[in-house]
């Protein structure tokens, strides 16, 4: 398999046009060109770390503050889902648990695995790692659902003294966590997944790649 780098070219990942290696910007779409983004992994780890830091307060602080005539209580993400389950809305509780707990945690693990696998030259099939990357990239945005639910509920449930729902501090932390992990996934350069495979199969091509770099 001939890659653009092996052919002495640099590919634009935005518009798929190729240019002679050494060109810094794509003449067609104006994106910055980088045969392999050396700083990609540092950015992945940086965004991932910030995302993880935001995810902790997102689970500890209340997401919703519900005030009714007689009581006021705070509910966290997991607490809210458990409440729903007790109320019988098991499907919705599962949607919340999947979108706000399972997906974010799976995303942290997958991005970390991908970033490590690139550096360590893991032998897991690149096709499946590529698939994993695509899923992480696609599914990341769906975690925002919980933030939207908070926004909808707190604008809708404002019934004077009878009942009022207000957003809690966790909504900010959770939104930040989702955004930072999306940035982390976007910073990852999937071409790195395929480089090591080429190098493992054919030591000669690795030598050639080294001289070009």
């Amino acid at each position: 398999m001939l890659t653009a780098r092996d052919a002495g070219l640099v590919a634009c990942t935005r518009c798929t046009r190729v240019w002679p290696i050494g060109q810094t910007h794509c003449d067609r779409c104006g994106s910055r060109l980088e045969s392999r983004d050396d700083k990609s992994l540092s950015r992945v780890w940086a965004w991932l770390a910030v995302g993880l830091m935001c995810y902790i307060p997102a689970n500890l602080y209340p997401m919703l503050v519900t005030k009714t005539l007689t009581s006021s209580y705070n509910s966290t993400i997991v607490g809210g889902a458990i409440e729903l389950m007790h109320g019988g809305a098991i499907v919705v509780a599962l949607v919340i648990l999947v979108a706000s707990v399972a997906i974010p945690i799976a995303k942290f693990v997958c991005i970390a695995y991908l970033a490590l696998s690139v550096r360590r030259g893991v032998r897991a099939a690149p096709g499946s790692r590529q698939k994993m990357y695509e899923i992480v990239e696609y599914i990341g945005r769906w975690s925002m659902i919980d933030v939207f639910v908070v926004a909808i509920l707190s604008s809708l449930v404002q019934l004077n003294v009878v009942a009022a729902i207000n957003p809690g501090p966790a909504s900010l932390a959770f939104a930040c966590s989702v955004i930072f992990t999306m940035l982390s996934a976007q910073a990852f350069d999937p071409r790195l997944i395929w480089d090591h495979i080429e190098a493992d199969e054919d030591p000669a091509s690795e030598g050639a790649a080294e001289t070009i770099r």
């Binding site: 001939l2 653009a4 935005r14 190729v18």
Partner: peptide
């Protein structure tokens, strides 16, 4: 010519 080539944005195959 370069404009007839396409590189896969995911894996850099030409």
């Amino acid at each position: 010519p370069l404009e007839d080539l396409i590189a896969c944005p995911r894996c850099d195959a030409l």
